[in-house]
């Protein structure tokens, strides 16, 4: 193809592409799409997948120590869900032409990021409650929005995930509810967990809109449909009401209803901490990645053995047929 033709085809393609987006037609794997759209989706979906997978680690920490058999079964089911969510998302990213191996490689070498929230430690049982309520709660707002994202396989994965995610948030809130009606120590543990997870949860929505680099293009392509600040505000408004049910408080003295805006005002996020954890200097960054690497390396022989076994079985079938 002549260069001229190629450029013309691409700019025409881009116009048709944007028209599809504007008329709410989903983009499917084999459809033409701008390279940057493909790349942005690969980056976002794979990071989302990594977050689900790394997100199993802080909770896995508590499976053996859950206070009852019921709680243990619930936590196991939840962590298994996270693995499933990782898989839905990896599959969605694979439809864009990147291999699973390459995505895993990017995670393990630190080239790809995952949600910084999982670089915080889980110190008490109440943290399982706070993670469910706040961390999953924040994630759900983002995920509900993504159910309508423009890339078909991503949107479908999100619908599946959202159906399962509300169990996560409810079980977390229930853990806190039980603690909030318990002994003074249990109440204190509940409040302490909320105090530690509140601000990192607000950071999950990412930098302020004025500093978010990818936001405009992602909104135009309808990969995202709400900005970081809009989602963060929605989260704050929701939690202020819910925390009252627990009889606990959110650790922000600036929280106040703003009649004019029709929203709660809230205090300034510690953006230095945010940047630091993103950069890899959070309390558990190294620990999490090392745990992931170890699991991947320890599992290598299993993957190889399964493949060898499958090949051998296939050969046997062939020989028997001959």
């Amino acid at each position: 193809m002549e260069v001229q033709d190629f450029v013309q085809k691409n700019s025409l393609g881009e116009k048709l592409f944007q028209q599809k987006i504007d008329t709410e037609t989903k983009i499917e794997p084999k459809d033409w799409m701008p390279d940057a759209y493909r790349k942005t989706n690969i980056r976002q979906i794979s990071q989302h997948a990594h977050s689900e997978v790394v997100g199993m680690l802080p909770e896995g920490n508590w499976i053996t120590r859950a206070p009852s058999l019921k709680r243990k079964a619930i936590l196991l089911a939840k962590v298994q869900d996270e693995a499933g969510h990782g898989l839905y998302l990896y599959s969605a990213a694979e439809t864009l032409g990147i291999s699973r191996d390459e995505m895993i490689e990017q995670l393990l070498t630190g080239k790809a990021k995952y949600s910084s929230i999982f670089n915080y430690p889980t110190l008490t049982w109440a943290d399982m409650g706070a993670i469910g309520w706040l961390v999953d709660g924040a994630a759900i707002l983002n995920q509900v929005m993504l159910c309508r994202t423009s890339y078909g396989p991503y949107a479908r994965a999100m619908v599946r995930i959202c159906k399962e995610e509300s169990f996560h948030q409810r079980q977390g809130f229930e853990i806190l509810l039980v603690l909030s009606k318990g002994t003074p120590e249990q109440k204190a543990m509940c409040q302490d967990a909320i105090n530690r997870w509140w601000w990192p949860s607000l950071m999950m929505f990412g930098p302020r809109d004025s500093e978010s680099t990818n936001s405009d293009q992602s909104m135009q392509w309808k990969i995202k449909r709400k900005t970081n600040d809009e989602l963060r505000q929605q989260f704050v408004d929701m939690c202020v009401e819910q925390v009252k049910v627990l009889g606990m408080t959110l650790p922000d003295k600036d929280l106040q209803w703003n009649e004019q805006r029709g929203h709660y005002d809230f205090g300034e996020i510690n953006w230095n901490e945010f940047r630091n954890v993103v950069k890899g200097n959070g309390p558990c960054n190294k620990q999490r990645l090392n745990a992931r690497k170890k699991a991947h390396e320890d599992g290598a022989w299993v993957r190889a053995a399964a493949m060898a076994h499958a090949k051998k079985k296939a050969e046997n079938v062939k020989q028997n047929a001959a």
Binding site: P29, K30, T95, L96, G97, D101, E102
Partner: peptide, 13 residues
């Protein structure tokens, strides 16, 4: 372990 970018698209094989 060496990996390659897969340029095949889903349902395209």
């Amino acid at each position: 372990m060496k990996t390659y970018i897969n340029k095949f698209f889903y349902g395209d094989y």
